[in-house]
Each structure stands twice: as C-alpha cells, then as structure tokens.
Design a protein around this nucleic acid. Structure first.
Lengths: 195, 195
DNA sequence: CGTCTATTTGAATGTACTCAAAAGCGGTGG
DNA sequence: CCACCGCTTTTGAGTACATTCAAATAGACG
C-alpha cells in the first residue's frame, strides 16, 4: 500500500518507521476512474495528494477552452496550491487520464505533522522547491522556443508521455492548438524522410 | 540594519530575539551600484539574498537577447534556485536596476540554520511556496493573454513598477518586443482619447 | 554639448491562429 | 462481430498578431 510513498519520501528525508506510520495514519486512499474529476474550479482543494498510480491532468478554462498546465504521474505529488494554502476556491480543474490511485493528506493534518515532526516540513520545502524549478523550466521553454521546438524538446526529454497522453492534451500543455501540432508533426516526419 | 528583514520574516514565522540574532549572524551585507552584476551565467549562486533596498533584474540570454524572467524588489528574496540547490553554474544573470542593498546567507549556513532552528525550515518552505505561486501566475498570464492584455494587466496590478523600470525591460518581462510594446501603448492611448 | 541608449514609427513578413471539413480511430450496443 | 457514434487527428484556405529589419526621434548621462 505505502511502498511507493515510502520510497518516494526517502529520496528527500530519512524517517523512522514510527514516524512514517504516523504520517500514513493521516492519509486517506482515494481512487479515480479514467476521466473522473478530482477537483473543479470553485471547489476548495483541501488535500495534498500522493499519486500512487496513474496520471492526473491539471487544467483551467479560457473562453471554454481547456488549457493544460501540467500532468502529474505516479510517485509525484499534486495539489492546487493557491486553493490549498489560501483556502479559497480553486480556479483550476483536475481529472484522471487513467485509472488513478491517490493518497491524500488534509491541510489540518499536514500542519499538525509539520509541527510534530519538523522533518516533514523539510519534505514540504523540498517539494515546493522542486515544483518551482519545474514550472520555471516550463516557463522558460514557453518564452524561448517556438511551437516546433517545444514539441521536439518534449519528445526528447519525456518521450514516454506520448505513449500515455492523447495528442490534443499534449498540444494544450505545449500551448499549441491541436491542428497546429498535427501540422508540425507532419512537417517533421517529411523532413526526416527526405534526409 | 535588520529592521526590514525582521519585519519581513515575522509575516511568516515568530522568532525569539536570540534566534533572530543567530540568523543575522550568518548574513553578510553586500551593496550593488546601479547596473552592477550580482550573478553571471556560469557562476555558481551560493547565497540566498534578502533585498533590503533597491531592485534586481533576473534574466537570461537567448541568441544574445536578454529575456527578463523576473524583477525583485526590497523586502523580497532572491536566489537562482537551480544553481543554489544543485551547486551547478547558473544559466541566468542578475543585475541591479538601482543602487541595491543585500543581505546574503550562504548555503552551508542556511542548512545549519534549518537544522538548528526548524522554524527557519518553515520560512524556507513558505518562501518556496510563494515563489511557486508567483511564477505559476505569470505562466498563466503568458499562455492566456495577448500582448496588449498582458500589458494592461501589469499596469493594473503593479502600476508602480512603471515608475522604476525602463520600458524595454518591462517589455522583455512581458515577453513582448520593445517595438511592439511601444505600438501597444500608442494604440491604447489613442483608444482612450477617442472615448 | 555630444554621445549613447531608449523609444517611436514604418513597411514587410511569418508563425501560429481561426474556421471549416474530411478522415481516422475507438468504444458501445444491437 | 459488425455498425454506428463520438471524439481525435489531419488537412486546406485565409487571417491576424506580433515579429523583423530599418531608421528617425527623444531622452539621459557624463
């Protein structure tokens, strides 16, 4: 049940079995079917989730169009931080792209954990830092590369997501319209076959 | 000397005078003249800086062109997190847009501080969370709004930065070419005078 | 005052877009 | 198992926003 969580945490902090037990005692299991929605805009996001299995899509609506901010995979953590920290309604949606298993910890419990075992505050710090680094990188990509380059970079750095995620979601994540991504792919494959 | 720092920290954590003294004993003062460079790409960023006074510009080069990622003002914190955490050379530059006063704490000292007074680990967590929220917001803006809307939003939400920062840096921050920002401003002012 | 940098303006261009529709694919029920 | 339906991907044609290249004007600083 908690092996993935255990392993994932131990990358950042060392915890005693008793501490880990205390931690897991705060967590509740939740499973989502493919396409099921975990969070809607205007709902409060009250938990941080460890993703034990599966994959989440984090997106928001602009004039009715879904814009994908990020994907989250097994062994990662997800929350809508604005809503979680601020206690205000989220502006974003989250749904499952596959059948997904989550372990959630509520804010109260997390704050208690931070108080009682400061090590976990360190975990929180490190996860926040990593989240920052990730989005920093993505922003740089968006402001630096054109559509084709963004696609090629993703292909190179995270080829596996193309096996799991429909093309139009990837397009959205790259801030490209699905039609445009289709054209880009055609151009690339015709370039390749010429050379 | 440390009043701003004191006040700034107390927004997030409560520290005893002795703890605060221990904290400040780790910090070293540094002042920058306008246009002076704090960090170059390929240097390691070994400190986190509290900005006591002034303003920093955080940017990187793309084909020789400076792209402004962020501005940092008094009472804020700055580091190049990739370099600071990873110990690798930075990919970014930082310079002072005004005469600036910094209080820096080196990584070793910060890690010691985290160990000895876990409260400061909390501060680190909160600052990282806030950094994440800030860049998240910026990314959303970049992917959602067109050039004119980005400019108007900045005007509305942070009008004061226009009094401190040259237009071409603001253009760069908004991911707009300076020529384009100039045109946008003209269009807006002609719209206004018509109505 | 002169020099250097920032801002403005003009004209032409290109990348990615919109609108529209066809083709492809996958899941579901008869 | 096949037929149908809805959703995804591809393709075409025309467009728009912001760009590039070029140059003039304005402003800041020594």
């Amino acid at each position: 049940m908690f092996e993935n969580l255990q392993k994932s945490i131990s990358r950042f902090i060392q915890v005693e079995p008793s501490e880990f037990d205390f931690f897991t005692s705060c967590m509740s299991f939740r499973s989502l079917k493919k396409k099921e929605i975990l969070l809607r805009a205007d709902q409060n996001c009250r938990s941080i989730y460890f993703i034990n299995k599966g994959c989440l899509r984090y997106y928001y609506l602009v004039d009715g169009e879904e814009k994908t901010a990020q994907f989250f995979f097994e062994n990662g953590w997800f929350t809508d931080l604005d809503s979680f920290l601020g206690g205000m309604p989220a502006e974003n949606f989250v749904d499952a792209l596959e059948d997904t298993e989550l372990l959630g910890i509520e804010k109260n419990d997390l704050m208690k954990l931070y108080e009682e075992i400061p090590k976990f505050e360190r975990l929180g710090r490190i996860l926040a830092e990593n989240a920052y680094l990730g989005i920093r990188q993505k922003t740089k990509t968006l402001t630096t590369l054109n559509a084709e380059q963004r696609y090629l970079q993703l292909m190179k750095e995270r080829p596996k997501i193309f096996e799991r995620i429909p093309q139009h979601y990837i397009a959205s994540y790259l801030n490209i319209k699905p039609q445009s991504l289709s054209r880009i792919r055609r151009q690339i494959s015709s370039k390749k076959s010429k050379s």
